[in-house]
């Protein structure tokens, strides 16, 4: 009789455990469903980590729409950062964004796309830029769209201007190698900037106009993003005047300290200060989580992180002038 009672007790205990286990799993599933429905739109559901947060989005290296780099494991490339910013616009669980920039600039159109996305983002949630080693030229262009810009005293920034470069290898090709280039074109400017012949005066004027146009776009972007900004946040900000902007927008670089004095940067400080202040701007608690937001979660993240550590980033090209990677293109780039 005793053995029967013990056996029945064990079996009943196990049976009850199964029932309680099923109920627990069911309750957890309901909670997880509710959370994900509240926090994200359907499309981005699978990419976001659960719960409200401040998104920390990083952008490293040259700003360009080079898809290949982000595919092999650089979610913090300009393309990856742009995607993350677009997600942050849609994601209701993101209460504010810290945009960490470490870039010498890049192509005009890509800088403008990122700038535009930050402008849209700041309409609905606070955005703070935290500058790392370098945030020059295009790096500053995108930063100017944020509500606040923070830089370390030694950060290199500024370099407001446009650059366009090309090579002239005519002598090398014809005299040393004996190779002659033949071009058939529909208009006289079709091969402007060709490396196989010297540039004509007319072409130089044409390209100068292109550079000037891009330069004015740069200035207007800083005026719209920074000088005309009119926000309600009670966090320290420094006013930049058009006069100062035009005086210093001659391509010169500035240290973070100089930039702060002139009004190009709002506060001296690193990621710590940026985190502290964005929590105030987003009206959340001091311990509110700040979550890296570039990388997709789960298996993809793991795969990306692995390839990131396995594939070396530096190569000989990284020691050459960056503009040579984008010949005949106006660039917001510090050389």
């Amino acid at each position: 009789m005793k053995t029967k009672i013990i056996s029945i007790s064990i079996i009943t205990l196990c049976f009850l455990s199964i029932i309680v286990g099923i109920i627990n799993t069911s309750v957890k599933t309901i909670e997880a469903k509710k959370k994900s429905e509240q926090s994200t739109s359907n499309f981005f559901k699978s990419f976001s980590s659960e719960g409200d947060k401040i998104a920390l989005i990083s952008m490293q290296g040259t700003i360009s729409s080079d898809m290949s780099s982000s595919l092999i494991g650089e979610p913090d490339s300009a393309e990856g950062a742009l995607k993350a910013l677009e997600r942050a616009v849609e994601d209701n669980s993101v209460k504010g964004v810290i945009f960490r920039i470490n870039s010498p600039g890049g192509t005009v159109a890509m800088s403008q796309e990122i700038y535009g996305t930050i402008m849209r983002l700041r309409e609905i949630k606070p955005v703070v830029v935290s500058m790392a080693d370098v945030a020059a030229s295009g790096g500053y262009y995108v930063a100017s769209a944020a509500d606040r810009i923070y830089a370390d005293p030694g950060t290199l920034t500024g370099s407001i201007g446009v650059i366009m470069g090309t090579l002239n290898v005519q002598e090398l090709m014809t005299q040393k190698l004996g190779v002659k280039s033949v071009v058939i074109k529909s208009g006289k400017f079709k091969d402007t900037g060709s490396m196989y012949r010297p540039m004509t005066g007319e072409e130089q004027i044409l390209l100068q106009n292109v550079v000037n146009s891009a330069y004015h776009q740069f200035l207007n972007a800083i005026i719209d993003g920074r000088i005309k900004r009119n926000d309600k946040y009670k966090i320290e900000k420094v006013a930049l005047t058009e006069q100062i902007l035009k005086k210093y927008a001659d391509g010169r670089i500035l240290t973070g300290e100089q930039a702060k004095t002139l009004g190009f940067v709002d506060k001296l400080g690193g990621l710590y200060e940026a985190k502290k202040d964005i929590r105030v701007m987003a009206k959340v608690s001091e311990t509110f989580p700040v979550t890296p937001y570039n990388k997709p979660t789960g298996f993809t993240e793991m795969l990306f992180s692995t390839t990131e550590s396995l594939i070396p980033h530096k190569n000989i090209e990284s020691y050459m002038p960056l503009s040579l990677n984008y010949p005949r293109q106006p660039l917001f780039m510090w050389e």
């Binding site: 199964i18 109920i23 069911s26 957890k28």
Partner: peptide, 9 residues
């Protein structure tokens, strides 16, 4: 499999 079941799955 039973231990992984959920009523509202």
């Amino acid at each position: 499999p039973v231990l992984k079941f959920s009523i509202n799955s």
